[in-house]
């Protein structure tokens, strides 16, 4: 492998990290809003609103049922509107964030639902507002499950960036397709695959470490 290739891989890795970071951040922000809204508007929730719940749930299911690659194509006009182009990592962030937000929303919803109704009730009984309940009870109590779920979400986004690479997003996925597949460069293919595996491992490992430290404090085990 020559130096050019190493530069190429390095560049691809940086592009991937760039996409993963910003897509995760935006998808997480949207996912938290979606997940919290789903939980609090659910039947028996602290801000019960069954119709709104149904609407959000249906939209999430709709977006999630589209294959990512189709979704990216559908969102290209939006990318052009927001960042002025449909090519490159920055354009991909728009599609990736929106594509991953419903996924993260569901993950966050299920993590928050693990918080026992009794804890919410105890907070209501002392006169806490829904806002206080969300930020001081629901989210902190669900933290280990949230971190575990968000780790899965970020790994999902890492996979998404590789797919997006196939249609001009750049990054390691794009390298694997352009060099590894289209030019039969097996060395590039293997190197990109190894880098992606390594990246996923690091994300998982960081998530595990974080969960462990939270649980160690609260439960003195794990």
């Amino acid at each position: 492998m020559n130096n050019d290739l190493i530069d190429l891989l390095w560049e691809g890795l940086l592009e991937t990290l760039y996409m993963v970071f910003w897509s995760s951040l935006f998808a997480l922000a949207m996912g938290v809003v979606l997940g919290v809204t789903l939980v609090v508007t659910d039947k028996g929730g602290i801000l019960e609103a069954p119709k709104l719940n149904k609407v959000i749930s249906t939209v999430i299911n709709g977006v999630r049922s589209l294959p990512l690659i189709i979704l990216i194509v559908l969102l290209l006009p939006l990318s052009r509107l927001i960042v002025g182009t449909t090519l490159g990592p920055t354009a991909a962030i728009v599609s990736l964030s929106i594509g991953a937000a419903p996924f993260l929303g569901r993950i966050i919803e299920s993590a928050l639902k693990e918080v026992s109704a009794g804890k919410i009730e105890a907070a209501k009984a002392v006169g806490a507002t829904p806002f206080t309940i969300i930020f001081r009870v629901l989210i902190p109590e669900a933290m280990p499950a949230l971190v575990r779920g968000i780790t899965i979400g970020i790994i999902g986004i890492t996979e998404f960036t590789a797919v997006a690479g196939a249609i001009g997003a750049g990054g390691l996925g794009s390298l694997a397709i352009r060099f590894g597949y289209q030019r039969f460069r097996e060395d590039v293919l293997i190197a990109t695959v190894l880098l992606i595996i390594l990246l996923v491992q690091i994300i998982q490992w960081s998530g595990d470490l974080l969960v462990k430290s939270i649980n160690k404090k609260r439960y003195k085990f794990e």
């Binding site: 026992s116 009794g118 804890k119 009730e121 105890a122 907070a123 009984a125 002392v126 006169g127 806490a128 507002t129 206080t132 001081r136 009870v137 902190p140 109590e141 933290m143 609260r218 439960y219």
Partner: peptide
């Protein structure tokens, strides 16, 4: 109006002090 429960319903993320402080924060 204070209330106590069969399942205690304490917050796992908070220490004893922080649990008891919660109503005063509210």
């Amino acid at each position: 109006i204070g209330m106590i429960f069969q399942q205690f319903n304490l917050l796992d993320a908070r220490t004893v002090f922080q649990n008891v402080a919660f109503p005063l924060e509210v």
